[in-house]
């Protein structure tokens, strides 16, 4: 799957979901390139092997996941009707129900423990938000994964710098993220979260690391829609037809 092209199509879908219902637009648009690359790797793996799980810990960005799954051919996600606002069990392509922030890294660590017991080498991917890192349970899980040497655990943080009520540095400053993760025993790989090649290289390094690894993906909230970029007003939104037309204009194929 050519991830950038797919991500552009996914962005159009995300905006389409917001016609008539409220959607977490800003985060879905910031994380969609990251998720596109993660899903590309998962689906490119040996089809005979069990698929690697993807835990979207920042569950409010599920619209990016729905859109990419639609691009992968899941018809359930062609429109937003009946889709929950956070990942739920029982939907195709959704590996773990999430939504309460700070849960996903622990769940992914548990999966990595189980795969090690089963002598399976497959990676477990977990995608977190930078605002989500406020949750203490994230750091409980980070310590645990390093202590247990879960080297097939691959985290990606969508570092868009904005959380619900403002810049992360103003709400609760979690910087410096690289040194924090390193101090917790993780290998840290920085990446441009909107560059497919850079993300692919970063995830290659993360998967080959000798310890749990985190890709710190620098992103832009609202990426791809100029009037939404860096603007918290689009954290959640419903689009009327005029706004939708404005938003989607720059994303024509």
């Amino acid at each position: 799957m050519p991830s950038l092209r797919s991500a552009a199509a996914a962005r159009r879908r995300i905006l389409g979901y917001a016609r008539g219902r409220t959607v977490h637009l800003g985060s879905s648009l910031s994380v969609v390139d990251v998720l596109a690359e993660v899903l590309r790797r998962v689906h490119a793996a040996d089809p005979g092997a069990p698929r690697s799980p993807v835990v979207l810990s920042k569950g409010h960005a599920v619209w990016a996941l729905y859109a990419l799954l639609a691009e992968h051919g899941h018809p359930r996600y062609t429109d937003a009707h009946g889709l929950p606002g956070h990942p739920a069990d029982g939907f195709p392509g959704i590996d773990v129900a999430t939504g309460s922030l700070g849960h996903g890294l622990s769940i992914a660590a548990g999966m990595a423990e189980a795969f090690r017991l089963d002598a399976q080498e497959r990676p477990v991917y977990v995608v977190l938000g930078d605002g989500e890192l406020d949750e203490g349970s994230v750091w409980e899980a980070a310590m645990f994964a390093a202590h247990r040497g879960l080297r097939h655990l691959v985290a990606v943080v969508d570092v868009n710098g904005l959380q619900q009520e403002g810049p992360t540095r103003e709400v609760l400053d979690t910087s410096p993220l690289d040194r924090k993760w390193e101090a917790f025993g993780w290998r840290v790989v920085p990446a441009d979260g909107h560059d497919a090649d850079d993300l692919a290289s970063a995830l290659d390094l993360a998967e080959q690391a000798d310890a749990p690894a985190v890709v710190l993906a620098r992103t832009v909230k609202g990426k791809g829609v100029p009037f939404m970029e860096h603007d918290l007003a689009w954290h959640t939104a419903t689009l009327d037809e005029a706004r939708y037309a404005d938003a989607v204009r720059g994303l024509e194929p």
Partner: peptide, 10 residues
């Protein structure tokens, strides 16, 4: 909190 999450993952 991590304990219960890890249990869920396993």
């Amino acid at each position: 909190a991590n304990l219960m999450g890890v249990a869920a993952g396993i």
